[in-house]
Amino acid sequence: MARFHVRTPSGEIVSGARAFAELWKVTPGWRWLGRIAAAPPLIWVLELAYRLFLPVRPALQRLWRRFAR
């Protein structure tokens, strides 16, 4: 659960922000976002944001569970 991973249609395994972009590229209604997100330099910014988010994700999950009851 350290990073989000996706296998692309070509069989390549990608992770992080690129994985989200690849997932959006094949999701109806979200394809436009996948194409935009995959373009440099935006993908680099999104990867940085993803890496900054990862350490706080467990705390956010705990808060969500606490308030979702």
Rank of each mutant, 00 (worst) to 15 (best):
A49F: 00
R69C: 06
A17R: 03
S15I: 00
R31H: 04
G11R: 07
A49Q: 01
W24V: 00
L52G: 06
Q61M: 12
P55N: 07
W64Q: 09
V56M: 09
A68S: 14
A2K: 14
L42S: 11
G29Q: 05
E12R: 15
I13N: 09
A2E: 15
L52N: 06
I36H: 03
R35P: 03
R57Q: 14
H5T: 09
V14E: 02
E12C: 02
P9M: 02
W44I: 08
S10H: 05
R35L: 07
G29Y: 02
G11W: 01
L46F: 08
A49Y: 00
E47N: 11
R65S: 12
E47Q: 15
L48A: 15
G29H: 05
K25E: 08
A21C: 08
L46K: 09
P28Y: 02
L42A: 10
R35Q: 11
I13S: 12
L48Y: 13
V56N: 01
Q61C: 10
W64T: 07
F67H: 12
E22V: 10
A21S: 13
R69N: 13
Q61K: 13
E47A: 11
V45M: 07
I36M: 11
V26A: 09
A68W: 05
A39D: 01
A21Q: 03
G34M: 04
A38H: 11
P28V: 02
V45A: 13
P40C: 02
F53C: 06
G34P: 08
R7A: 04
L48G: 15
L48E: 10
K25T: 09
R35V: 11
R69I: 02
S15K: 01
Y50C: 05
A2L: 11
I13G: 04
R7F: 00
W24T: 03
A17G: 08
T8N: 10
Q61P: 00
I36C: 05
V56G: 03
L63W: 12
R57I: 07
